[in-house]
Design a protein around this nucleic acid. Structure first.
Length: 122
DNA sequence: GCCATGGCTAGTA
DNA sequence: GCCATGGCTAGTA
């Protein structure tokens, strides 16, 4: 045995391996289930994919959306109804949402609860 | 380190 | 406003 400590490897101890990777494709699949005129949130998508803590990762996946035209990532906003980010800028995101019938009150999606949907996998 | 988040806390009006 | 979260990226050696 000896006393050698392989400290470099400690961070790979299996009890710490709690990560679950979210795939880009499953995020995009969920996005396609958000109809025009509705919004969802980064956290809701993360939850639907089984990793409630991964909202941030969802955001980063949307940021590299290869096809912003087809995949409606503009329909994903923050959990408090603020607009959130967009590849072409928040102003453009807001325009797209307004074209679909979403309006804003003090920078927050109006009637947020009414227009919020919770897309599910399957 | 960074980040297209989220949730909670303090502390102002 | 602050900081926990979790996975990825840039950029060094």
């Amino acid at each position: 045995m000896g006393n050698i400590n392989h400290q470099k490897h400690l961070k790979y101890d299996d009890e710490n391996l709690t990560q679950s990777t979210i795939k880009d494709s499953e995020v995009y699949d969920l996005l396609l289930k958000i109809p025009a005129g509705k919004v969802s949130t980064y956290g809701d998508l993360a939850k639907a994919l089984g990793n409630p803590l991964a909202s941030r990762q969802v955001g980063r996946i949307l940021a590299r959306n290869p096809n912003p035209i087809k995949v409606p990532c503009h329909r994903v906003v923050m959990s408090d109804g603020k607009i959130g980010g967009y590849f072409y800028g928040s102003d453009r995101k807001r325009e797209l949402l307004e074209e679909e019938g979403i309006s804003f009150t003090d920078e927050i999606v109006s009637n947020f609860k009414k227009v919020r949907v919770y897309p599910q996998k399957q």
